[in-house]
Design a protein around this nucleic acid. Structure first.
Length: 305
DNA sequence: ATTTAGACCTGTCAGC
DNA sequence: TGCTGACAGGTCTAAA
């Protein structure tokens, strides 16, 4: 998924639904062996079990769940992971599929239009059983997602040294951004996606930002003019804000905590639009590979410098 | 300092 | 219908 807008949408959903609840049990489904990256299941459960969820927040593309015992759970959803919250009417089978309580109290497969029947939500890898029967579950088709456990203070240092500024925070200023673009000699698209530079931009919003700012994805960062830098700075913030406002992009697996799709994909201007016409100039958009990532751009609007 | 290739996984879709 | 290859919201490591 999960770039900044998708993770932010998830975090906002979790704030409304799981804060204040206690973690009663943690169940890893099947052989999702590498999921709990820094802990075995036993020690993980030992620390997390009985913990009360104090807060849920985001840093870069990470979901952070703060407990009342000096520990924080760090979840990174990578490509296909997303978190779902269900009421006690639902349960997860040993195959990682959802079941819903039927009229006679029996468990049956989810069907029809229920978000919990969506095939993208049927790849549950870990289940957190919370107080009041609430379920927090991670669905992740590709099994790249990771769950880590940190001492909350240690986590702050870890995040600080690993990530650059969040483009929607005050620490991300135009002066700093344009200065850094000049100082570095990197290809602009991979630079925007470098989490140590700025945190939260991925393949979708990089393409969208470059298109909006009329910058070719292969431009060297130090070749950008001051006005290019300003355009890109504004574009990044506008595109990410719009992504959040529309609840993220769900062209692939991403779903919000209720299992529903985000709407950014319906209005995207560049991402996966190769072969379609540019919304600005009607030129047919092209696809190329940059930094091993599929990249769509308008060859007319986004000229290589 | 920066780029590239390969790994990690599983599913879908286009093309033959 | 069945197979094969390309492609998919990310990050990490090693090597050039």
């Amino acid at each position: 998924m999960p770039e900044l807008p998708e993770v932010e949408t998830t975090v906002r959903g979790l704030k409304r639904t799981i804060v204040g609840h206690t973690i009663n049990d943690v169940r890893v489904v099947g052989n999702s062996h590498k999921l709990l990256r820094s802990h075995e299941h036993g020690p993980f459960l030992e620390i997390v079990g009985g913990g009360r969820i104090e807060d849920v927040r985001r840093r870069a593309k990470n979901v952070i769940i703060d407990l009342d015992n000096q520990h924080s759970i760090l979840i990174h959803m990578r490509m296909s992971g997303h978190l779902l919250v269900a009421s006690s009417q639902y349960q997860v089978t040993s195959e990682g599929k959802w079941q819903v309580k039927g009229p006679t109290g029996n468990w049956q497969p989810t069907t029809g239009n229920s978000p919990f029947a969506d095939p993208k939500n049927q790849f549950i890898r870990i289940v957190f059983e919370l107080s009041d029967g609430i379920i927090l579950a991670l669905s992740d088709l590709r099994k790249f997602a990771t769950v880590d456990l940190f001492n909350t203070n240690a986590l702050a240092k870890h995040l600080e040294q690993k990530y650059g500024p969040d483009p929607l925070e005050k620490t991300f200023t135009l002066d700093w951004f344009s200065q850094e673009l000049k100082r570095r000699k990197r290809t602009i698209k991979p630079l925007l996606m470098d989490q140590a530079f700025i945190a939260g931009v991925g393949n979708i919003y990089a393409d969208e930002s470059l298109w909006k700012a009329k910058v070719h994805p292969l431009t060297r960062s130090d070749a950008l003019s001051q006005s290019d830098a300003r355009a890109l700075y504004s574009a990044i913030r506008a595109v990410l804000s719009k992504g959040i406002a529309l609840g993220g992009t769900s062209d692939d697996d991403y779903r919000n905590v209720a299992g529903e799709k985000g709407k950014y994909g319906l209005t995207r201007m560049a991402y996966r639009r190769a072969g379609e016409k540019c919304a600005r100039c009607n030129t047919v958009m092209k696809r190329m590979v940059v930094g091993q990532r599929g990249t769509s751009f308008c060859p007319h609007c986004q000229k290589k410098i």
